[in-house]
Design a protein around this nucleic acid. Structure first.
Lengths: 198, 198, 198, 198
DNA sequence: GATGAATGAGTTTTCATTCAT
DNA sequence: AATGAATGAAAACTCATTCAT
């Protein structure tokens, strides 16, 4: 009788997509369950068949976000080719991802603002640690290829990640005042110049 | 008839301090006017003698925050001494400011997350633009002193600001995983190496 | 999936009835939404599913009131029979309506007292104008029947309407001091005597 | 030291005047003690030195209103001259009083709307009774002068008072739709025609 | 499974009243 | 007497969550 073979997981994903769309447009706090329901074309009560609470949706949205982001990073890092090429590709991918859907990118502000218990306490520590680990892999490869000096400082992955995040942050907050792509490019170039062999 | 020893501005500042303290501890959204009142040791109604609404408090808190931060930056930039020393001092000051009161630093997450109308939509664009302008001044001085090459890329201030913000962001989100001070130091050194003359 | 037997319009009407009952007993201004909810046997929030605001309820109550009243007047005016009979019937109906439920009749005091914006400022002008128009029809008929002189003054409908309202007003304010029914009868007789042909 | 010799009663009267002015402009319910204080050029606390509560002010305003109104009526009734002249003068005075200051006249709506205890329960019964008594005196005089028939119905004073109030009510509610002065004149003429001797 | 009417705890905001100065 | 800062009870309104159908 059901037109599409919607199984539980698919439907959950559909609702989550709707939620993310609304969060992106209006922000998490102003968004009502009713808004999500409307966007997802289901009744309010249905939401509670797939999520235990409003916060649960936010947690799930974050999870989804982080997974996709890390997945993309991992794919680039583990691709073939010179390490520096992959590094540049990584930075470009982050910037493109953000600039393609600024509203979506702004969701991280909401994630960051979540505090204390209530949510499954959005686990940024794990995400960023993994992100840095992947960058470290890239830097090791680059060192092995002789593209950067062999003794890059331990903090370098944090620096690189911070650089990209910091540039994107400024762009998100003031798209007219900061050109994300050139700034990210400049950032990477300067950093790599500082890491140059010899 | 008696002017009452309580100065209106002072009292407003006291309440604002209380509010900021609570925002820092619990986050902006979860904070109730009642909480602020309790912290400020006044009755709920008193708050409304000094602020027109809950949002007005957030706006004022942000104003205060931005003013203090920019004021500090400006003082350092306009101090005497070699430009590079001042640059390092600036970075150190930002890091120290954040690490001294992490909870306070986290407030910016709340500011960022605020959307749409209600507040006069916190003007981050202006703040960051001014921040970058001051860093640009520092870079000009450094170039004049021959401490960096004369043709630093236009995006460099944004990169430098992003660097500090990005490193602090990671530290705020995972204090155990990122050492703010060394990471910031490393970051600055690498960038300056990349900007070295010749 | 189930349409639920509760009809939305019916429920709205039920709540409105409850509201009118409470307004009649306590007056509009002293009445709290909670009181209306209790009287209607629903929760506070339910009220807001059927009315957008407290003022909206007042407006609806007035609407209902005016509709019923005008409907009754119209029915009598458009009935068959000698014009004077209908006029007397009209006056009697107004008086009976008021005396049957004095508390309900007093509600108009609240309506009159409502000022400024908030409500769409209850449109008494329209109501009374229509009321006068209907009375004018009656007078025309009476003139055609030769029951009153052919040149009744233009203001007569206003005078007739005012008569009934003024008598009822005094009775509402002092039921013991003024007998509504005889006073209205006397009033009509005297006026009609003044309007007699010749 | 006080510039004007303001004694307690004078000041009370000043505040009351201010209150009435504000009530007339904005209506009783929307008016805040603060508004009255501002209008009276005193501090909020001062109001409470002359009135025990907000409702007390309304009661006093009503008292004042009723006293002035009845005083005017009494003066006209007890003046010299033919009874019918005095009757016409009375009606004219009521109409002129209302039309001169419509806003002020609308205050009675607020008075009427007051319910139950809380206020000193505005005593309209007494006021209207006295009003009717004075009109009755006029009618007796007129009968004695042969200007109306000797057996005017007992309800006539109530009818006359109602007529004037009813006409003014319609005018207050719709100044554009009802001409107070002509309508009142017509009302009196018709009534007197109905009461004519023979 | 799905719905959406109903609920009521929770929040912001207002404002009459008090009282220290 | 006068002031006006402070109070906190009260009220309107919101919205996450439940549950009968």
């Amino acid at each position: 009788m059901s037109p599409r073979p919607v199984n539980k997981d698919e439907k959950r994903a559909e609702i989550l997509d709707a939620a993310i769309r609304v969060f992106a447009r209006d922000g998490y706090h102003p968004t009502k369950i009713e808004d999500v329901a409307r966007q997802a074309r289901v009744a309010k009560g249905t939401i509670y068949l797939y999520f235990t609470s409003r916060d649960d949706i936010l947690a799930a949205a974050f999870e989804r976000f982080a997974d996709e982001a890390l997945h993309g990073v991992r794919a680039i890092v583990e691709a073939d080719g010179p390490a520096l090429d992959r590094l540049h590709a990584l930075v470009r991918a982050m910037v493109t991802g953000a600039t393609a859907e600024p509203e979506l990118a702004r969701i991280v502000f909401d994630f960051w603002a979540v505090r204390g218990p209530g949510t499954g306490t959005v686990d940024f520590a794990r995400i960023y640690a993994e992100y840095r680990r992947l960058v470290a892999v890239l830097l090791d490869d680059a060192a092995a290829e002789g593209a950067v000096r062999p003794d890059v400082p331990e903090q370098t992955p944090a620096v690189l990640v911070g650089l990209v995040e910091g540039v994107l942050l400024q762009w998100l907050v003031d798209p007219a005042g900061v050109a994300a792509e050139p700034a990210a490019r400049t950032a990477t170039d300067l950093l790599l110049a500082g890491l140059a062999p010899r």
